[in-house]
Design a protein around this nucleic acid. Structure first.
Lengths: 168, 168
DNA sequence: CGCTCACTTCACAAATTTGTGAAGTTAAGG
DNA sequence: CCTTAACTTCACAAATTTGTGAAGTGAGCG
């Protein structure tokens, strides 16, 4: 393996390259609909040494104002992707990734499905089960109900696979 | 059952109520990150009698310009949620929902996961497998690989369940 | 107790996104 | 072929979203 890819020779981090990764992944998340600053903060945490950073560190690394960090963190904690912790003996907060990272994120998605299903069930009633539109909408509602059942099962399989890999 | 809910007495559609449903569901989709006009057009098609409408019908029902319809349809066809068909003998296009509606939509989501995984794999190499950050990112990549395997299986189960319900 | 530091909130300016009208393109129909 | 209808593209205006600086809040330290 050469040093044109992978970890740099010295074993240290190449901040420039890490930043490119952060911005690249944040870009993907933003494309998928997540707020831009929230995406950047999340990506920065993901690429951070310990999976946690302080507000000041985020502000400096991403070149954004403390206010922007605050806004992003508000969103990320709201959707349970990040946890806040006071750094003992200081007046600094640390923002941490959840360890069961994607578990949390998907749990949140689930909430969306609940709302969608509810609206669709109402719509299906409105149109009536004897109409094509009513049936179409009812089927959509059933699909989202189905997915809601499936996701926890899927996450359980992930947890199991993860545990297996860890003990190898 | 009373007429305060469900299909109206006459058996016909209540355009006012249908419109409320359309806007309500479109709102949910928009909240989840989909373009607003695309959401509205999609919802209108979902609630339409035959699962298809012409550009003019969409334009009138949603009170938007033909240009807006055009833009929304461009997006929806791009992501395979809607199909375009020329209405024979006229110069009108009809826009149709795919019959395997959510099947298509989820297939598209899959594409996103492919890209995310690729970026993460690169990031993991960059940080190195001997670092916490590298391992964290590698695990994320593995998670998305896992989900990519799971989704087709899940959709297959949905197809099967659907088929079972239909023949009952 | 009062100062200071770390973060948050707020009002606003900048940037981006969105939808429109108007002009352009294509194809059906005479 | 010329007209016209149906849709698309484009440039721009409007609306929305986003991020900032400045003021505010409150916890820790002296």
């Amino acid at each position: 393996m050469t040093s044109t890819n992978g970890a740099p020779p010295g074993g240290g981090r190449d901040p420039e390259a890490v930043s490119r990764f952060v911005e690249r992944f944040a870009g993907e998340m933003a494309d998928a609909g997540m707020q831009r600053m929230a995406s950047r903060v999340f990506a920065a945490l993901l690429a951070s040494e310990k999976g946690s950073l302080t507000s000041t560190e985020l502000s400096e690394q991403l070149r954004i104002s403390p206010a922007a960090v605050s806004g992003a963190i508000r969103y990320l904690t709201h959707v349970s992707m990040v946890r806040r912790e006071r750094e003992p003996g200081t007046r600094r907060d640390r923002y941490l990734l959840h360890d069961q990272l994607w578990y949390e994120a998907f749990g949140r998605r689930d909430q969306i499905l609940v709302r969608w299903e509810a609206v669709l069930v109402e719509g299906a009633e409105l149109l009536g089960p004897d109409t094509p539109a009513g049936r179409r909408i009812a089927e959509s509602a059933e699909f989202f109900a189905f997915v809601q059942e499936e996701i926890p099962l899927m996450m359980e399989r992930w947890r199991a696979q993860r545990a297996r890999q860890r003990e190898e």
